[in-house]
Design a protein around this nucleic acid. Structure first.
Lengths: 138, 138
DNA sequence: CTTTCTGCAAAAGGTTTGCAGTTAG
DNA sequence: CTAACTGCAAACCTTTTGCAGAAAG
């Protein structure tokens, strides 16, 4: 199952409509190697079917809500979620030079199990990003 | 040693000047219970000695560079670093409701030791934030 | 057919830049 | 005294909002 098909399935399940702009943004994200902002995505969309940036903002909002993309804070952009079905702590290694990011899932995440209780926090969500140099840029 | 004194020491060591605006921002951050943006900080500074927001932006940039404050991405604001001298992975638990944040340091951080090597990343820095509800807000 | 979605225009908000004058060391 | 810092004005970029028309299911 590809990222696009899987995402469409999830959107339908959550009763969102499958529209042209949403498909187009999915296609861009499916190919992307680095985190993309709304404006980055606009640039990657074919000129013959231009999509308004405002729409892209709204599309990304929905995508993030249903969990098919992640926001990368280190780079102020979005990447597709490669492990939609896996529970656990989704983390990223982000190259500070080229931006390439790799997602990985930790089933046993200290941060989400032990520490919050100790601090009397009830965990809801979690941001975890490592920034460094990738093989190509090192 | 208080946060302010320790910070001044660090700034001097890095040959930054100790100016009025820098002192004022340190004083605000020393008291703050939640992450503050540049504009938040401006509001907390005494009316009789107003400081330009542009200056606050530049002050925060320096403070972050020398490591005396941390940016909280969950809330788009800055907090003082409570563990300047401790090496390791500085993480935060942030209340999604009131914004109160607690810093903690993990000496043994899986994310900074095992995983990066596996991914051929050379670790440089690390963002780790848990978002949830604190005791008061739960 | 109805609800959701999109485009446009505009506003709002946050951040950055250049430059001249000020100040810490 | 000199390099570093600040204030001001303006530019710039990103994100949000309201509303009328379009389109998916």
């Amino acid at each position: 199952m590809t990222f696009i098909d899987e995402s469409i399935q999830i959107l339908k399940r959550e009763s969102y409509k499958i529209t042209g702009p949403r498909r187009a943004v999915l296609e861009v994200l499916a190919e992307a190697e680095i985190p993309l902002s709304a404006y980055d995505i606009e640039e990657h969309i074919p000129e013959n079917i231009p999509i308004n940036v405002v729409t892209i903002y709204r599309v990304l909002e929905v995508f993030e809500k249903v969990g098919i993309i992640h926001k990368i804070h280190t780079k102020e952009g979005y990447v597709r979620c490669d492990f939609e079905k896996q529970k656990g702590c989704h983390s990223f290694a982000v190259c500070s030079e080229c931006g390439r990011s790799k997602e990985f899932v930790q089933k046993e995440c200290k941060l989400e199990t032990q520490l919050p209780q100790k601090l009397v926090y009830k965990s809801l969500s979690h941001i975890s990003e490592i920034s460094g140099l990738c093989k190509q840029c090192a």
